[in-house]
Design a protein around this nucleic acid. Structure first.
Lengths: 198, 198
DNA sequence: GGATAATACTGCCAATGGCAGTAAAAACGT
DNA sequence: ACGTTTTTACTGCCATTGGCAGTATTATCC
């Protein structure tokens, strides 16, 4: 009995189920789309792709651009079966890692200005992400968009990204506004914490 | 020059800046609050706390309950300085890991039913999280709530958690509704992807 | 024609998670 | 009062992952 594949392995199988890719291209796809909700480093992709070949879920074809080699991976029938079965399994709960929120949570140990800077930066990041998403959406408008059969699924996923980033920037702006009435970081003055949670 | 502390180390310093805790208690706090945006396993907390002592950011006091030992950690002046300086640094962008979104993204490889199940489970999880948060909010109402001086910051952080989970369940329910008009997973019928992204 | 970016890959180590295992005290049910 | 479950407390071991440096070749831009 072979060990079940990791989510990362299955995610790569997902990409390979669309078309064959070189490792570099796989890493680019992770960067540009998959990585929104399953971020993995390029370094990891190189190792993972090799493992998929070892376990028979993909095949590797060595090619070359001049004297520079490259490896192109293609999903096997076994890989497709594994992926389809994986879709039946239940998903681990989403996991969020937000350094900015940690700084907010321990803002007590610093100043009100530090808190506001953290919040402003976070809001700016989220707005920038949304700008990038809008550029991406525009490219899907092109008549020669190569993944037309994925447009509906992509739209659902991009909608998530838009909502997610909108939620963060809205929250950060709201939080900044709340601090307006605070005297300092440890004294919220007459601010009503309870009404913030209704 | 000592190595800069990791975010995890600084997060523990943040907890210790509130009061001394045993490792077990630190792990519980991570489970109940910090872990919402900086999830770390209990296993890791045990190692990290020791490292804080080695680097002089905390001290350890060995106590005992009967014959069962326990280690209580306390932040040092150096620890407080480090934490306060850390609050000035800029934060890494939030990182989201959502297995459910990966399954959505590669739903093409499966069936419409699989997609809907994934979405339903995700929405249910988020709603359950919100229920837990509401219980937590109720405890902060108690007159003997031990962290009164943290109420305003806690409220801001909990507001984030509520918004975050609300966003996810809203999106999942919206996505499920979108699939109503699809013929099957590869054929969205006359569904207009573009109007989903406005 | 030279600088910069994109493509292609590996080695090494620190950070982290997951799981099993051990053990004592506390809480709970009956 | 006695047995079961839960809570508290901790360690060992290994797989997963990230971060960074290093090495090359080809493509692009000015």
């Amino acid at each position: 009995m072979a060990k079940p594949l990791t989510t990362t392995s299955n995610a790569l199988l997902g990409l390979l189920s669309i078309q064959p890719w070189s490792t570099y291209e796989l890493a680019k796809q992770v960067d540009r789309s998959l990585g929104w909700f399953w971020p993995r480093t390029e370094r990891k992709i190189y190792d993972e792709a090799k493992k998929l070949v070892e376990s028979g879920h993909a095949t590797a074809k060595l090619q070359a651009t001049g004297s520079r080699p490259r490896t192109v991976y293609k999903i096997t029938a076994k890989g497709r079966r594994t992926l389809q079965a994986w879709l039946d399994e239940s998903s681990a709960p989403p996991k969020l890692e937000a350094e900015a929120l940690v700084r907010v949570f321990f803002a007590n140990a610093g100043t009100l200005d530090q808190l506001r800077t953290t919040l402003d930066d976070l809001a700016a990041q989220s707005r920038a992400n949304m700008d990038e998403l809008r550029v991406l959406i525009a490219t899907a408008d092109d008549a020669d968009y190569p993944f037309a059969e994925r447009r509906h699924i992509n739209a659902i996923a991009i909608r998530f990204q838009l909502d997610y980033n909108q939620m963060i920037s809205d929250w950060a702006e709201w939080a900044t506004a709340q601090t307006d009435s605070w005297n300092d970081i440890t004294d919220p003055n007459s601010w009503d914490w309870h009404s913030a949670l209704t």
